[in-house]
Design a protein around this nucleic acid. Sequence first.
DNA 1: AACCCATTAGGTACGACGAATTCAAGAGAC
DNA 2: GTCTCTTGAATTCGTCGTACCTAATGGGTT
Lengths: 233, 233
Amino acid sequence: MSTPGRGLHGRVLDTLGPAITAGEYPPGSVLLTDELAQRFEVSRSVMREAVRVLESMHLVESRRRVGVTVLPECEWNVYDPQVIRWRLAGSERPRQLRSLTVLRSAIEPVAAGLAARLATPEQCAELTECALGMVANSRGHQLEGYLFHDMAFHRVILTASGNEMFARLGGVVAEVLAGRTHHDVMFEDPDPAAVTLHVQVAEAVRARDAERAERLTREITVGALQELDILAP
Amino acid sequence: MSTPGRGLHGRVLDTLGPAITAGEYPPGSVLLTDELAQRFEVSRSVMREAVRVLESMHLVESRRRVGVTVLPECEWNVYDPQVIRWRLAGSERPRQLRSLTVLRSAIEPVAAGLAARLATPEQCAELTECALGMVANSRGHQLEGYLFHDMAFHRVILTASGNEMFARLGGVVAEVLAGRTHHDVMFEDPDPAAVTLHVQVAEAVRARDAERAERLTREITVGALQELDILAP
DNA sequence: AACCCATTAGGTACGACGAATTCAAGAGAC
DNA sequence: GTCTCTTGAATTCGTCGTACCTAATGGGTT
């Protein structure tokens, strides 16, 4: 997915990145550039470029006379799409999924409220189209079709909010939704109540009812939280 | 601040990063690695490492026979702390500040609600201490002291939420708050109502009243939005 | 305890070659 | 004559290897 094999240093990252984010190297672990270069059978130049990228993600820190030390998790750029993908692909997947779902529950309602005020007619139409597509695929185990429209729906909401920070989470939300369908338990058809909520959100945005759009979207995200057993006692 | 001068490639980034994020090179502009190396008086190796970092931030894309092309803004990793700093330092500062404030308004209330349920006694105490510090510095143009406790307050809230994605925004919020005090108009003492709200949030968290903590924090962020004239007509 | 120095690993520079893509010139067909 | 397809040359990044510099570290000396 995304950008596979954009050079040798990319190949190295495809192995090193997941390994580090999976916690295979405890914080403080020391890696040596030349040693890594030998292990991956690449030149030092290539390995140095890979280390620079990991450094920009704050996964590691390079210091003279010491080597490349792995940084503690609290330093990582956890919003980096690449880091998110690596963590979603590894053993930290459940925890990452929970973090992202909580993030969704905070962002999406506000984004929907903004979208209700700022969405263009085209975006309103697109939203309705997505919601109808969800309805059409909500029965008969058409999970892929449903997922496609679900991802599109949330991406439109986030984009239509007019906030670039929200819009940039479209890909993340898409991966969360895809993960729920593909990896986790999703044997049955989607919850009819959730489908209805999406349709109602589309209506609220079209009607410029920000408060209603926000409240309905909050209900959707609450459902997502409940699916992962994230709730108050 | 942060990490100045971590090598020659860092120096290059300190110039190129702000230039690109400021829009000095329109999307699609092509830069040549060797040309850049000459301009910055560094070797090609160093320049290549710098380009790799910019590439990992999705600011540029490197292609053979073409060069290093600047990507459109919608591709940038706008959550990268480095990118945020560069944009806050440039001409895009007002727009960046608005985006981040809207982001705050979505995140912080939810974070406060979670903090009310998950904060440790130490974090509750720290929160109260911060709020009292804000009160103590709220009169007599003690802006620096007020800012210090304000930043600490919001950082504790975000950390105590137990969500790493929220916690990672602590630095961003701190920079927004600092920006408001230093660059923008903030001649007078802070709004007494805002100070009171912070104290009440600390109380609500201590009392484990999630709903109240969330609502009060929402009032704080609404105030921040109004300061930037972000509101519904 | 303070100081000095050898070791070590990253930091930088330079040069060479390989690989891929773009662009233009030329051959061919209609 | 114009258009298309092919071919090839130019260009720029990609990779490699070497050499040397720099600066932290750790141990040994005074």
